[in-house]
Design a protein around this nucleic acid. Structure first.
Lengths: 227, 227
DNA sequence: TCAACTTTGTGCATGGGTTCACAAACGTCT
DNA sequence: AGACGTTTGTGAACCCATGCACAAAGTTGA
Protein backbone atom coordinates (compact mmCIF):
# COMPACT_ATOMS: atom_id res chain seq x y z
CA UNK A 1 0.00 0.00 0.00
CA UNK A 2 2.40 2.64 -1.18
CA UNK A 3 1.44 6.28 -0.63
CA UNK A 4 3.52 7.58 -3.53
CA UNK A 5 1.59 7.80 -6.78
CA UNK A 6 4.86 7.41 -8.71
CA UNK A 7 5.18 3.92 -7.30
CA UNK A 8 1.52 2.93 -7.51
CA UNK A 9 0.75 4.05 -11.01
CA UNK A 10 2.14 3.01 -14.30
CA UNK A 11 4.01 5.89 -15.94
CA UNK A 12 3.77 5.70 -19.75
CA UNK A 13 7.08 5.26 -21.58
CA UNK A 14 6.53 8.39 -23.62
CA UNK A 15 6.23 10.36 -20.40
CA UNK A 16 9.34 8.78 -18.85
CA UNK A 17 11.30 9.77 -21.95
CA UNK A 18 10.36 13.42 -21.41
CA UNK A 19 10.94 13.61 -17.66
CA UNK A 20 14.74 14.03 -17.95
CA UNK A 21 14.16 17.05 -20.16
CA UNK A 22 11.78 18.61 -17.67
CA UNK A 23 14.23 17.93 -14.90
CA UNK A 24 17.14 19.48 -16.74
CA UNK A 25 15.15 22.62 -17.50
CA UNK A 26 13.89 22.89 -13.92
CA UNK A 27 17.47 22.61 -12.63
CA UNK A 28 18.52 25.45 -14.92
CA UNK A 29 15.61 27.59 -13.73
CA UNK A 30 16.48 26.84 -10.11
CA UNK A 31 20.07 27.98 -10.74
CA UNK A 32 18.71 31.18 -12.22
CA UNK A 33 16.79 31.77 -9.00
CA UNK A 34 13.33 31.13 -10.45
CA UNK A 35 10.99 29.91 -7.69
CA UNK A 36 7.83 29.05 -9.55
CA UNK A 37 6.73 28.23 -13.12
CA UNK A 38 3.43 27.71 -14.87
CA UNK A 39 2.96 24.74 -17.17
CA UNK A 40 2.77 27.22 -20.05
CA UNK A 41 6.20 28.70 -19.30
CA UNK A 42 7.94 25.40 -18.62
CA UNK A 43 6.40 23.79 -21.70
CA UNK A 44 7.66 26.66 -23.86
CA UNK A 45 11.20 26.18 -22.50
CA UNK A 46 11.19 22.47 -23.20
CA UNK A 47 9.37 22.70 -26.50
CA UNK A 48 6.18 20.75 -25.78
CA UNK A 49 2.50 21.69 -25.40
CA UNK A 50 1.41 22.77 -21.96
CA UNK A 51 -1.37 20.19 -21.89
CA UNK A 52 1.14 17.44 -22.48
CA UNK A 53 3.37 18.72 -19.71
CA UNK A 54 0.45 18.80 -17.27
CA UNK A 55 -0.68 15.32 -18.21
CA UNK A 56 2.86 14.00 -17.86
CA UNK A 57 3.24 15.57 -14.43
CA UNK A 58 -0.16 14.30 -13.35
CA UNK A 59 1.25 10.77 -13.59
CA UNK A 60 3.65 11.56 -10.74
CA UNK A 61 1.03 13.07 -8.49
CA UNK A 62 -0.48 16.48 -7.92
CA UNK A 63 2.32 18.91 -7.21
CA UNK A 64 0.98 22.06 -8.83
CA UNK A 65 -1.05 24.84 -7.29
CA UNK A 66 -4.03 26.08 -9.32
CA UNK A 67 -3.83 29.72 -10.21
CA UNK A 68 -0.09 29.74 -9.44
CA UNK A 69 1.92 26.99 -11.09
CA UNK A 70 4.62 24.64 -9.85
CA UNK A 71 7.25 25.22 -7.22
CA UNK A 72 10.53 24.69 -9.09
CA UNK A 73 12.41 22.96 -6.26
CA UNK A 74 9.56 20.66 -5.33
CA UNK A 75 8.83 19.60 -8.85
CA UNK A 76 12.50 18.93 -9.58
CA UNK A 77 12.69 16.79 -6.48
CA UNK A 78 9.58 14.81 -7.37
CA UNK A 79 10.80 14.13 -10.90
CA UNK A 80 14.18 13.05 -9.51
CA UNK A 81 12.39 10.70 -7.19
CA UNK A 82 10.19 9.27 -9.94
CA UNK A 83 13.24 8.63 -12.11
CA UNK A 84 15.10 7.03 -9.23
CA UNK A 85 17.81 9.68 -9.09
CA UNK A 86 17.65 10.13 -5.34
CA UNK A 87 19.81 7.04 -4.98
CA UNK A 88 22.95 6.84 -7.04
CA UNK A 89 23.71 4.40 -9.78
CA UNK A 90 27.09 2.73 -10.19
CA UNK A 91 28.02 2.59 -13.88
CA UNK A 92 30.64 0.57 -15.73
CA UNK A 93 31.90 1.34 -19.23
CA UNK A 94 33.21 -1.41 -21.47
CA UNK A 95 35.35 -0.39 -24.45
CA UNK A 96 37.72 2.50 -23.82
CA UNK A 97 38.43 3.73 -27.32
CA UNK A 98 37.68 7.30 -28.30
CA UNK A 99 34.04 6.97 -27.43
CA UNK A 100 34.64 5.27 -24.10
CA UNK A 101 37.04 8.02 -23.08
CA UNK A 102 34.55 10.67 -24.14
CA UNK A 103 31.77 9.02 -22.14
CA UNK A 104 33.93 8.56 -19.06
CA UNK A 105 34.91 12.21 -18.95
CA UNK A 106 31.43 13.41 -19.88
CA UNK A 107 30.34 15.77 -17.15
CA UNK A 108 26.69 14.80 -17.38
CA UNK A 109 27.64 11.52 -15.80
CA UNK A 110 28.58 12.78 -12.41
CA UNK A 111 26.08 15.60 -12.14
CA UNK A 112 23.10 13.57 -11.06
CA UNK A 113 22.95 10.16 -9.56
CA UNK A 114 25.48 8.38 -11.76
CA UNK A 115 28.95 7.34 -10.66
CA UNK A 116 31.58 5.53 -12.69
CA UNK A 117 32.89 2.54 -10.76
CA UNK A 118 34.54 0.53 -13.51
CA UNK A 119 36.24 0.94 -16.89
CA UNK A 120 37.04 -2.15 -18.95
CA UNK A 121 39.04 -2.87 -22.10
CA UNK A 122 41.04 -5.92 -23.14
CA UNK A 123 43.62 -3.89 -25.07
CA UNK A 124 46.88 -4.30 -23.05
CA UNK A 125 48.01 -0.87 -24.24
CA UNK A 126 45.22 0.68 -22.15
CA UNK A 127 45.67 -1.46 -19.04
CA UNK A 128 45.83 0.54 -15.82
CA UNK A 129 45.44 3.88 -17.55
CA UNK A 130 43.33 6.04 -15.27
CA UNK A 131 40.38 8.11 -16.46
CA UNK A 132 38.47 10.25 -13.97
CA UNK A 133 40.33 8.38 -11.23
CA UNK A 134 39.31 4.88 -12.31
CA UNK A 135 41.80 2.36 -13.73
CA UNK A 136 41.05 0.51 -16.97
CA UNK A 137 41.00 -3.25 -16.40
CA UNK A 138 40.41 -6.34 -18.58
CA UNK A 139 36.78 -7.34 -19.02
CA UNK A 140 37.40 -10.67 -17.30
CA UNK A 141 37.66 -8.83 -13.98
CA UNK A 142 34.20 -7.32 -14.23
CA UNK A 143 32.36 -10.23 -12.73
CA UNK A 144 34.56 -10.33 -9.62
CA UNK A 145 34.33 -6.57 -9.27
CA UNK A 146 30.55 -6.69 -9.57
CA UNK A 147 30.36 -9.33 -6.80
CA UNK A 148 32.20 -7.03 -4.38
CA UNK A 149 30.96 -3.62 -5.49
CA UNK A 150 27.73 -4.01 -7.49
CA UNK A 151 27.32 -2.36 -10.88
CA UNK A 152 23.80 -1.23 -11.79
CA UNK A 153 24.26 -0.10 -15.37
CA UNK A 154 26.66 -1.33 -18.04
CA UNK A 155 27.63 0.85 -20.99
CA UNK A 156 28.87 -0.83 -24.16
CA UNK A 157 31.21 1.39 -26.20
CA UNK A 158 32.99 -1.28 -28.22
CA UNK A 159 32.94 -1.85 -31.98
CA UNK A 160 29.85 -3.69 -33.25
CA UNK A 161 31.41 -7.16 -33.66
CA UNK A 162 32.39 -7.31 -29.97
CA UNK A 163 29.10 -5.97 -28.63
CA UNK A 164 27.17 -9.22 -28.24
CA UNK A 165 30.01 -10.95 -26.39
CA UNK A 166 30.41 -7.99 -24.05
CA UNK A 167 26.66 -7.93 -23.52
CA UNK A 168 26.66 -11.62 -22.64
CA UNK A 169 29.45 -10.98 -20.14
CA UNK A 170 27.47 -8.15 -18.52
CA UNK A 171 24.30 -10.20 -18.34
CA UNK A 172 26.25 -13.20 -17.08
CA UNK A 173 27.62 -11.10 -14.24
CA UNK A 174 24.07 -10.16 -13.30
CA UNK A 175 23.75 -6.68 -14.76
CA UNK A 176 20.27 -6.04 -16.11
CA UNK A 177 20.42 -2.47 -17.43
CA UNK A 178 22.54 -1.85 -20.50
CA UNK A 179 23.22 1.21 -22.62
CA UNK A 180 24.55 0.21 -26.01
CA UNK A 181 26.49 2.58 -28.27
CA UNK A 182 27.53 -0.12 -30.73
CA UNK A 183 25.56 -0.32 -33.98
CA UNK A 184 24.27 -3.82 -33.31
CA UNK A 185 21.04 -5.38 -32.08
CA UNK A 186 21.71 -7.24 -28.85
CA UNK A 187 19.79 -10.32 -27.86
CA UNK A 188 19.22 -10.58 -24.13
CA UNK A 189 17.06 -12.69 -21.83
CA UNK A 190 13.78 -11.14 -20.73
CA UNK A 191 14.14 -8.93 -17.69
CA UNK A 192 17.23 -7.23 -19.09
CA UNK A 193 16.77 -3.67 -20.35
CA UNK A 194 18.76 -2.49 -23.32
CA UNK A 195 18.71 1.01 -24.73
CA UNK A 196 20.61 1.82 -27.87
CA UNK A 197 22.14 5.11 -28.95
CA UNK A 198 23.31 5.12 -32.50
CA UNK A 199 25.01 7.96 -34.28
CA UNK A 200 24.60 6.64 -37.78
CA UNK A 201 20.89 5.96 -37.33
CA UNK A 202 20.41 9.57 -36.32
CA UNK A 203 22.46 10.80 -39.27
CA UNK A 204 20.42 8.68 -41.63
CA UNK A 205 17.17 10.05 -40.29
CA UNK A 206 18.51 13.57 -40.80
CA UNK A 207 19.57 12.65 -44.33
CA UNK A 208 16.06 11.44 -45.08
CA UNK A 209 14.52 14.76 -44.05
CA UNK A 210 17.25 16.75 -45.79
CA UNK A 211 16.55 14.82 -48.98
CA UNK A 212 12.84 15.50 -48.66
CA UNK A 213 13.55 19.20 -48.30
CA UNK A 214 15.77 19.29 -51.38
CA UNK A 215 13.27 17.24 -53.39
CA UNK A 216 10.49 19.59 -52.40
CA UNK A 217 12.62 22.54 -53.50
CA UNK A 218 13.33 20.80 -56.81
CA UNK A 219 9.66 20.05 -57.40
CA UNK A 220 8.87 23.69 -56.70
CA UNK A 221 11.39 24.87 -59.29
CA UNK A 222 9.97 22.45 -61.87
CA UNK A 223 6.48 23.65 -61.14
CA UNK A 224 7.53 27.23 -61.79
CA UNK A 225 9.29 26.38 -65.05
CA UNK A 226 6.53 24.07 -66.30
CA UNK A 227 3.32 25.27 -64.68
CA UNK B 1 4.56 13.01 -61.55
CA UNK B 2 7.26 10.92 -59.94
CA UNK B 3 7.24 7.17 -60.58
CA UNK B 4 8.99 6.33 -57.34
CA UNK B 5 6.59 5.56 -54.49
CA UNK B 6 9.24 6.66 -52.01
CA UNK B 7 8.98 10.17 -53.37
CA UNK B 8 5.24 10.24 -53.89
CA UNK B 9 4.09 8.83 -50.61
CA UNK B 10 4.50 10.09 -47.13
CA UNK B 11 6.67 7.74 -45.07
CA UNK B 12 5.67 7.76 -41.36
CA UNK B 13 8.34 8.94 -38.93
CA UNK B 14 8.16 5.69 -36.98
CA UNK B 15 8.99 3.82 -40.16
CA UNK B 16 11.85 6.13 -41.10
CA UNK B 17 13.36 5.55 -37.66
CA UNK B 18 13.45 1.80 -38.30
CA UNK B 19 14.78 1.86 -41.87
CA UNK B 20 18.43 2.36 -40.84
CA UNK B 21 18.19 -0.77 -38.72
CA UNK B 22 16.78 -2.79 -41.60
CA UNK B 23 19.51 -1.45 -43.86
CA UNK B 24 22.28 -2.30 -41.45
CA UNK B 25 20.99 -5.85 -41.03
CA UNK B 26 20.56 -6.31 -44.79
CA UNK B 27 24.15 -5.14 -45.35
CA UNK B 28 25.39 -7.69 -42.85
CA UNK B 29 23.38 -10.44 -44.53
CA UNK B 30 24.73 -9.41 -47.93
CA UNK B 31 28.29 -9.66 -46.59
CA UNK B 32 27.49 -13.14 -45.35
CA UNK B 33 26.43 -14.07 -48.86
CA UNK B 34 22.71 -14.32 -48.14
CA UNK B 35 20.74 -13.60 -51.31
CA UNK B 36 17.14 -13.60 -50.12
CA UNK B 37 15.22 -13.19 -46.84
CA UNK B 38 11.62 -13.54 -45.79
CA UNK B 39 9.97 -10.84 -43.68
CA UNK B 40 9.84 -13.37 -40.87
CA UNK B 41 13.60 -13.96 -40.88
CA UNK B 42 14.58 -10.32 -41.27
CA UNK B 43 12.14 -9.22 -38.60
CA UNK B 44 13.61 -11.77 -36.18
CA UNK B 45 17.12 -10.41 -36.82
CA UNK B 46 16.06 -6.84 -36.22
CA UNK B 47 13.75 -7.59 -33.33
CA UNK B 48 10.37 -6.43 -34.68
CA UNK B 49 7.20 -8.23 -35.78
CA UNK B 50 7.09 -9.43 -39.34
CA UNK B 51 3.82 -7.63 -40.00
CA UNK B 52 5.44 -4.38 -38.97
CA UNK B 53 8.40 -4.97 -41.24
CA UNK B 54 6.14 -5.69 -44.20
CA UNK B 55 4.04 -2.63 -43.55
CA UNK B 56 7.14 -0.47 -43.24
CA UNK B 57 8.54 -1.78 -46.51
CA UNK B 58 5.21 -1.35 -48.25
CA UNK B 59 5.67 2.39 -47.82
CA UNK B 60 8.70 2.30 -50.13
CA UNK B 61 6.99 0.26 -52.81
CA UNK B 62 6.50 -3.39 -53.59
CA UNK B 63 9.90 -5.06 -53.69
CA UNK B 64 9.08 -8.49 -52.29
CA UNK B 65 8.10 -11.64 -54.15
CA UNK B 66 5.22 -13.62 -52.72
CA UNK B 67 6.13 -17.12 -51.76
CA UNK B 68 9.82 -16.20 -51.79
CA UNK B 69 10.73 -13.10 -49.81
CA UNK B 70 12.95 -10.13 -50.54
CA UNK B 71 16.13 -9.96 -52.59
CA UNK B 72 18.75 -8.71 -50.14
CA UNK B 73 20.67 -6.51 -52.58
CA UNK B 74 17.58 -4.94 -54.11
CA UNK B 75 15.96 -4.20 -50.80
CA UNK B 76 19.14 -2.67 -49.39
CA UNK B 77 19.40 -0.45 -52.44
CA UNK B 78 15.79 0.68 -52.20
CA UNK B 79 16.09 1.53 -48.53
CA UNK B 80 19.30 3.43 -49.24
CA UNK B 81 17.50 5.35 -51.91
CA UNK B 82 14.53 6.12 -49.68
CA UNK B 83 16.84 7.42 -46.96
CA UNK B 84 18.79 9.49 -49.46
CA UNK B 85 22.04 7.58 -49.01
CA UNK B 86 22.71 7.21 -52.70
CA UNK B 87 24.09 10.73 -52.73
CA UNK B 88 26.64 11.60 -50.11
CA UNK B 89 26.25 14.09 -47.32
CA UNK B 90 28.99 16.51 -46.29
CA UNK B 91 29.13 16.78 -42.49
CA UNK B 92 30.79 19.33 -40.23
CA UNK B 93 31.48 18.79 -36.52
CA UNK B 94 31.65 21.72 -34.12
CA UNK B 95 33.34 21.16 -30.77
CA UNK B 96 36.42 18.95 -30.87
CA UNK B 97 36.71 17.82 -27.27
CA UNK B 98 36.67 14.15 -26.37
CA UNK B 99 33.28 13.63 -27.95
CA UNK B 100 34.12 15.51 -31.15
CA UNK B 101 37.25 13.44 -31.59
CA UNK B 102 35.30 10.24 -30.98
CA UNK B 103 32.65 11.24 -33.51
CA UNK B 104 35.19 12.28 -36.14
CA UNK B 105 37.01 8.97 -35.98
CA UNK B 106 33.81 6.94 -35.72
CA UNK B 107 33.88 4.45 -38.54
CA UNK B 108 30.12 4.51 -39.07
CA UNK B 109 30.53 7.97 -40.49
CA UNK B 110 32.38 7.06 -43.61
CA UNK B 111 30.72 3.75 -44.29
CA UNK B 112 27.63 5.02 -45.97
CA UNK B 113 26.98 8.32 -47.59
CA UNK B 114 28.52 10.60 -44.95
CA UNK B 115 31.77 12.48 -45.38
CA UNK B 116 33.45 14.81 -42.92
CA UNK B 117 34.35 18.07 -44.61
CA UNK B 118 34.91 20.35 -41.64
CA UNK B 119 35.99 20.27 -37.99
CA UNK B 120 35.61 23.41 -35.87
CA UNK B 121 36.72 24.51 -32.44
CA UNK B 122 37.70 27.91 -31.07
CA UNK B 123 40.25 26.50 -28.63
CA UNK B 124 43.64 27.74 -29.97
CA UNK B 125 45.31 24.65 -28.51
CA UNK B 126 43.43 22.53 -31.06
CA UNK B 127 43.95 24.80 -34.09
CA UNK B 128 45.22 22.99 -37.17
CA UNK B 129 45.31 19.61 -35.48
CA UNK B 130 44.26 17.05 -38.07
CA UNK B 131 41.71 14.31 -37.44
CA UNK B 132 40.89 11.85 -40.21
CA UNK B 133 42.73 14.16 -42.58
CA UNK B 134 40.73 17.31 -41.79
CA UNK B 135 42.21 20.29 -39.96
CA UNK B 136 40.42 21.84 -36.97
CA UNK B 137 39.60 25.51 -37.62
CA UNK B 138 37.89 28.30 -35.66
CA UNK B 139 34.10 28.39 -35.96
CA UNK B 140 34.23 31.82 -37.62
CA UNK B 141 35.54 30.18 -40.78
CA UNK B 142 32.57 27.85 -41.15
CA UNK B 143 30.41 30.30 -43.06
CA UNK B 144 33.08 31.00 -45.71
CA UNK B 145 33.83 27.32 -46.02
CA UNK B 146 30.14 26.51 -46.44
CA UNK B 147 29.85 29.08 -49.23
CA UNK B 148 32.62 27.36 -51.22
CA UNK B 149 32.03 23.73 -50.31
CA UNK B 150 28.50 23.31 -48.94
CA UNK B 151 27.85 21.49 -45.67
CA UNK B 152 24.60 19.54 -45.44
CA UNK B 153 24.63 18.44 -41.83
CA UNK B 154 26.10 20.16 -38.76
CA UNK B 155 26.97 18.20 -35.64
CA UNK B 156 27.14 20.04 -32.31
CA UNK B 157 29.50 18.39 -29.81
CA UNK B 158 30.16 21.37 -27.54
CA UNK B 159 29.26 21.82 -23.87
CA UNK B 160 25.64 22.83 -23.28
CA UNK B 161 26.22 26.56 -22.65
CA UNK B 162 27.83 27.03 -26.09
CA UNK B 163 25.27 24.99 -27.99
CA UNK B 164 22.73 27.68 -28.83
CA UNK B 165 25.38 30.10 -30.14
CA UNK B 166 26.91 27.38 -32.30
CA UNK B 167 23.47 26.43 -33.52
CA UNK B 168 22.75 30.03 -34.47
CA UNK B 169 26.04 30.14 -36.39
CA UNK B 170 25.15 26.97 -38.30
CA UNK B 171 21.66 28.19 -39.11
CA UNK B 172 23.03 31.62 -40.05
CA UNK B 173 25.40 29.98 -42.52
CA UNK B 174 22.43 28.23 -44.10
CA UNK B 175 22.67 24.74 -42.66
CA UNK B 176 19.25 23.24 -41.98
CA UNK B 177 20.00 19.78 -40.58
CA UNK B 178 21.57 19.60 -37.16
CA UNK B 179 22.55 16.74 -34.88
CA UNK B 180 22.92 17.96 -31.30
CA UNK B 181 24.89 16.06 -28.67
CA UNK B 182 24.77 18.87 -26.11
CA UNK B 183 22.22 18.51 -23.31
CA UNK B 184 20.29 21.63 -24.30
CA UNK B 185 17.07 22.39 -26.15
CA UNK B 186 17.88 24.43 -29.24
CA UNK B 187 15.51 26.98 -30.67
CA UNK B 188 15.61 27.20 -34.42
CA UNK B 189 13.50 28.79 -37.15
CA UNK B 190 10.98 26.51 -38.82
CA UNK B 191 12.43 24.52 -41.69
CA UNK B 192 15.50 23.59 -39.68
CA UNK B 193 15.68 20.01 -38.46
CA UNK B 194 17.28 19.25 -35.12
CA UNK B 195 17.80 15.80 -33.66
CA UNK B 196 19.21 15.39 -30.21
CA UNK B 197 21.23 12.54 -28.80
CA UNK B 198 21.67 12.73 -25.08
CA UNK B 199 23.62 10.35 -22.93
CA UNK B 200 22.22 11.44 -19.62
CA UNK B 201 18.61 11.23 -20.80
CA UNK B 202 19.21 7.63 -21.80
CA UNK B 203 20.88 6.86 -18.48
CA UNK B 204 17.97 8.38 -16.59
CA UNK B 205 15.46 6.29 -18.52
CA UNK B 206 17.49 3.19 -17.66
CA UNK B 207 17.60 4.26 -14.02
CA UNK B 208 13.82 4.55 -14.00
CA UNK B 209 13.35 1.01 -15.22
CA UNK B 210 16.09 -0.31 -12.93
CA UNK B 211 14.33 1.33 -10.00
CA UNK B 212 11.04 -0.23 -11.00
CA UNK B 213 12.67 -3.64 -11.11
CA UNK B 214 14.21 -3.25 -7.67
CA UNK B 215 10.95 -1.89 -6.23
CA UNK B 216 9.06 -4.83 -7.67
CA UNK B 217 11.57 -7.20 -6.07
CA UNK B 218 11.19 -5.39 -2.77
CA UNK B 219 7.40 -5.55 -2.93
CA UNK B 220 7.62 -9.25 -3.66
CA UNK B 221 9.81 -9.82 -0.59
CA UNK B 222 7.39 -7.84 1.58
CA UNK B 223 4.49 -9.82 0.22
CA UNK B 224 6.22 -13.06 1.16
CA UNK B 225 7.01 -11.85 4.67
CA UNK B 226 3.58 -10.30 5.24
CA UNK B 227 1.17 -12.25 3.06
C1' DT C 1 -1.15 -28.46 -66.06
C1' DC C 2 -2.79 -28.28 -61.64
C1' DA C 3 -2.77 -28.66 -56.70
C1' DA C 4 -0.41 -27.71 -52.49
C1' DC C 5 2.48 -24.68 -50.05
C1' DT C 6 4.74 -20.35 -48.96
C1' DT C 7 4.98 -15.50 -48.28
C1' DT C 8 3.68 -10.85 -49.42
C1' DG C 9 0.73 -6.77 -49.09
C1' DT C 10 -3.13 -4.77 -46.78
C1' DG C 11 -7.97 -3.91 -44.64
C1' DC C 12 -9.47 -3.72 -40.03
C1' DA C 13 -9.47 -3.69 -35.18
C1' DT C 14 -7.07 -2.39 -31.09
C1' DG C 15 -4.35 0.46 -28.10
C1' DG C 16 -1.48 4.44 -26.72
C1' DG C 17 -0.40 8.99 -27.05
C1' DT C 18 -1.56 13.80 -28.01
C1' DT C 19 -4.52 17.67 -27.98
C1' DC C 20 -8.64 20.17 -26.82
C1' DA C 21 -11.57 22.24 -23.73
C1' DC C 22 -13.53 22.97 -19.33
C1' DA C 23 -14.74 22.46 -14.45
C1' DA C 24 -12.55 22.74 -10.05
C1' DA C 25 -9.35 25.08 -7.15
C1' DC C 26 -6.45 28.73 -5.73
C1' DG C 27 -4.85 33.60 -5.01
C1' DT C 28 -5.90 38.49 -5.12
C1' DC C 29 -8.24 42.70 -4.86
C1' DT C 30 -11.96 45.43 -3.54
C1' DA D 1 -16.55 38.22 2.43
C1' DG D 2 -17.27 37.82 -2.29
C1' DA D 3 -16.28 38.43 -7.15
C1' DC D 4 -12.70 37.99 -10.58
C1' DG D 5 -8.80 36.33 -13.00
C1' DT D 6 -5.49 32.60 -13.41
C1' DT D 7 -3.84 27.93 -13.77
C1' DT D 8 -4.17 23.12 -12.75
C1' DG D 9 -5.90 18.39 -13.51
C1' DT D 10 -8.60 15.53 -16.44
C1' DG D 11 -12.55 13.60 -19.34
C1' DA D 12 -13.28 13.09 -24.16
C1' DA D 13 -12.11 13.26 -29.04
C1' DC D 14 -8.79 12.57 -32.28
C1' DC D 15 -4.82 10.59 -34.49
C1' DC D 16 -1.09 7.60 -35.41
C1' DA D 17 1.07 3.17 -34.80
C1' DT D 18 0.96 -1.67 -33.97
C1' DG D 19 -0.73 -6.34 -34.60
C1' DC D 20 -3.98 -9.65 -36.59
C1' DA D 21 -5.72 -12.24 -40.17
C1' DC D 22 -6.52 -13.24 -44.82
C1' DA D 23 -6.85 -12.83 -49.86
C1' DA D 24 -3.77 -12.42 -53.69
C1' DA D 25 0.25 -13.92 -55.93
C1' DG D 26 4.00 -16.48 -56.59
C1' DT D 27 6.83 -21.13 -56.45
C1' DT D 28 7.50 -26.04 -56.36
C1' DG D 29 6.60 -30.72 -57.38
C1' DA D 30 3.92 -34.33 -59.26
Amino acid sequence: MSADPALRREIPDATVARLPEYLRTLSRLAEDGVLSVSSEELAAEVGVRSAQLRKDLSHLGSYGVRGVGYDVETLALEISRALGLTEDWPVAIVGMGNLGHALASYSGFVTKGFRIVGLYDDDPALADERVVGVAIRPLAELSAHHAVDPIAIGVIATPAPAAQAVCDALVGAGISSILNFAPAVLSVPSGVDVRRVDLSTELQILAFHAQRKSLAAGALRSAVVVP
